[in-house]
Design a protein around this nucleic acid. Structure first.
Length: 461
RNA sequence: UCCUCGGUAGCUCAGUAGGUAGAGCAGGUGGCUGUUAACCACCUUGUCGGCGGUUCGAGCCCGUCCCGGGGAGCCA
């Protein structure tokens, strides 16, 4: 170490390149130590990949008795030594240490992570340490790769990324409760925060309305950022803060919208299967048996597609007894959605053309006026993963719908201007990023798909 | 927010005719072995979720609150 960052090799590269008989240096955290009579085996993980590298620490090392025999899970070390072929089963290569520097100790009496498997509920209580586990580390790498793939997908297709605001004064109807913003100390003044922006402001529930602005200037755009919902919702599929991918395309209708959504999902699945193979194997083996087969099937098979009306018919025809009755004009319940995607079609399903009365003002009304050009993509196990629509581009129709919904037109003058000046058909959708990660990793609870989950009553750091 | 099941050692859990608690793993000590969920022996550990109540006596019964799982609503 001669100032600056320690120069070392990432374990991922060592395991791929296997530069046998060369001097290597790794830095990471001890997973386990096993002693033999005269030397010790250390499992070191540096987070670059799922696998550890085995380090042989011989008794002759200067700090063998004083330090190495005291190493335990969680300690950070810097190891230098010769990479050699391992004579025993279990690993191809290992490092015969020439020196091991203990960078940071982790008192085994108090370090909460043990060698054994922990419950995800417990790990959630130590969100600052859980990325050091195999499963949560794998989720973090998959999440990073998926994020990269989202950008690659859109950039390769000429989409322009737009950073839509986190603070907003316009509510995106039908997108849940908005967190309200204030600059005042609690209880000292206007609770709605009107003192700062001059009007009620909150954290965005969707970047869609602002994305529409840029779509009607740049053509194809997308936003990918944090989104907030103040709903008091406690399920394995909800977060108060989550990330959403929202493309918006000008001169595009519902068909083009559906095509893009399906293409995006299949691209992302293919990418992660190719580029996160080891992590995905872990999920397939320990989190959801058959996960890989399920995902591969999705990349090969086209999504099913039916209209809401057809979905209602199919549900009515089925002999299945539902808790909630199926009826045209009423939104599909979770049990209906799950039955459609898990039992009837057994693959991702796009449902389109919902009744206008149950959908927000911005969705394009059909000629007969009964339905809107909406689409939901349902996947087995998760339910709705994408929701989108063709937007209402006709000024008079949009204005009428907003008035019918009781929306203050003057607050949305800017939104109506998009229809007043050079309006164009356009469409887009929102993809819940964590729900996608949930689907891809097989994690049962969405709180394991984001580093620091925020849920009602839970935001520890 | 509603329904439902839970909260006991650091972790995962057992523990009802109400009589102040156990196991496995982890941790500590010693031994053994190119080990890899290592193994063998011994040892340590508890405001039984919080508060209140019933009772001579509560982990166990009652009330209430908090937290977690599953489901619902809401949604992505």
């Amino acid at each position: 170490m001669n100032g600056g960052k320690i120069v070392q090799t990432r374990i991922k590269n060592l395991l791929v390149e296997k530069p046998v008989d060369s001097l290597v240096q790794v830095a990471g955290w001890i997973r386990t130590r096993r002693d033999t009579g005269s030397f010790s085996f250390l499992e070191v993980n540096d987070g670059s990949c799922l696998a550890n590298i085995q380090v042989i620490a011989e008794g002759g090392l200067a700090n063998y008795e004083t330090e190495i025999r005291k190493l335990s899970a969680g300690c950070s070390v810097q190891v230098e030594g010769n990479l050699q072929v391992s004579p025993a089963k279990g690993q191809d290569i290992e490092i015969l240490a020439a020196s091991i520097i203990v960078v940071g100790w982790a008192d085994p009496e108090h370090y909460p992570l043990q060698k054994k498997r922990h419950s995800f509920e417990f790990l959630r209580e130590i969100s600052h340490l859980r990325p050091r586990t195999n499963a949560l580390g794998a989720v973090a790498r998959v999440r990073s790769r998926m994020s990269y793939a989202v950008h690659t997908f859109f950039q390769e297709r000429g989409f322009c990324q737009v950073h839509t605001p986190v603070i907003t004064t316009s509510d995106c109807e039908g997108a849940g409760e908005m967190f309200q913003l204030t600059a005042l100390e609690a209880g000292t003044g206007d609770p709605c925060g009107q003192e700062f922006f001059g009007r009620k402001a909150g954290l965005t529930v969707s970047g869609q309305l602002q994305a529409e602005v840029y779509a009607l200037a740049l053509g194809d755009v997308y936003t990918f950022g944090p989104t907030f919902r103040a709903e008091n919702s406690n399920t394995s599929r909800h977060l108060a803060e989550f990330w959403m991918v929202e493309p918006e395309m000008a001169f595009c209708d519902l068909v083009g919208n559906m095509r893009l959504a399906e293409e995006l999902l299949r691209y992302l699945l293919g990418d992660v299967l190719t580029n996160c193979a080891d992590d995905m194997d872990l999920f397939d083996q320990f989190i959801e048996k058959g996960l890989l087969a399920k995902l591969r099937g999705m990349t090969e098979q086209e999504f099913a597609h039916i209209t809401y009306t057809e979905a209602v018919d199919r549900l009515l025809q089925s002999k299945k007894k539902f808790e909630f009755q199926v009826r045209w004009g009423v939104d599909l319940q979770s049990e209906h959605e799950r039955y459609l995607t898990e039992e009837i079609f057994r693959r991702p399903l796009i449902v389109t053309d919902y009744p206008a009365a149950i959908k927000p003002f911005y969705m394009r009304v059909s000629d007969h006026g009964r339905t809107v050009a909406a689409m939901d993509i349902l996947v087995p196990g998760i339910g709705e993963i994408i929701g989108g629509s063709q937007r209402e581009e006709r000024l008079d129709v949009l204005t009428a719908r907003m008035q019918a919904a009781g929306i203050n037109i003057s607050d949305y003058a800017w939104y109506l201007d998009l229809r007043r000046y050079g309006t164009a058909p356009h469409a887009g959708f929102g993809l819940g990023f964590e729900r996608l990660i949930q689907f891809v990793t097989g994690m049962a609870n969405i709180r394991e798909t984001i580093p620091f989950p925020r849920t009602p009553g839970f935001a520890p750091c």
